[in-house]
Design a protein around this nucleic acid. Structure first.
Lengths: 147, 147
DNA sequence: TATTGTTATACTCTATAACTATA
DNA sequence: TATAGTTATAGAGTATAACAATA
């Protein structure tokens, strides 16, 4: 287990990553908001989802997730259909238009990442990716309540 | 150099880290906004700064940085004095009250990180921290313009 | 003229609370 | 009663553009 100074440093670098993300998001095509991009990406990654699952995955309030969904539906990027098993629930799925939009953004983002990280080794890219995934999963359980 | 699929995965995990950060920030003490917390942290880390430097470090628009500063000054957490060398410029520095506030938040954040990452090895915590720092620095140069 | 910083404005993001419909 | 989701509202975050002061 690491010591306090290491956690301080980790916390600080989490902010730094936020700066990178913020910068990346500035390049989204006009008309595509950050939230819609996030919804499309999560749906692509996890397949069809209920609103509650999307809420969990985005780690936002349910009301926020609901509004993101409404926006993405209005743009024609996702479809919101009734869940036959539980009529309170909705099933969200990517439309072809949504997939096109996502593909375009992915293409651009991947390109800029490749450009910026040209001097990174394979191992470092993978290492960072894996550790970030593990970080997320360390926060996945019992994430509710005040800390 | 990594291949496209690896960058896609990296991009996806950047979002996941955003979820973690969002969750962490929800625990800030009432009255302390995310932006103020960021300003205090950067000032602590880098020492006295000019507004332009803060803007760079936070990777936000200058107008946003200016407003964050105004808020933190209003709370008594930072001081905004004139730069004797260039009277257009301002020097920002932490006040004792600002340092107290930061210490309290750091304490809490460090604690929750330690709790969540109890099963991480020293090496993994350090590895993630270093790679995130390197990611940030890979975006530091020529960060302007559209990508 | 260019640079540093601020203000005005508009839009997006986020959480809380109140609500509807279904279980 | 509890749960899934939506809507209303208010506050925080962000970018663009116009501006003032200084270099």
């Amino acid at each position: 287990m690491a010591d306090k100074a290491q956690y301080e440093e980790l916390k600080s670098q989490l902010s730094a990553v936020g700066s990178v993300t913020r910068w990346l998001m500035r390049g989204l095509p006009v008309g595509l908001s950050r939230s819609s991009a996030a919804v499309l990406e999560v749906l692509d990654r996890h397949g069809d989802l209920r609103v509650g699952e999307l809420t969990e995955l985005l780690a936002v309030d349910a009301s926020a997730a609901s509004r993101y969904v409404t926006q993405a539906v209005a743009r024609g990027w996702i479809e919101r259909s009734l869940d036959p098993l539980d009529r309170r629930s909705r099933i969200l799925s990517l439309t072809p238009a949504g997939r096109d939009q996502l593909d375009e953004v992915s293409e651009r983002l991947t390109h800029v990442l490749a450009e910026r990280l040209w001097d990174w080794s394979d191992e470092d890219v993978t290492g960072l990716t894996d550790l970030m995934a593990r970080l997320r999963s360390s926060f996945d359980d019992q994430r509710n309540g005040v800390w």
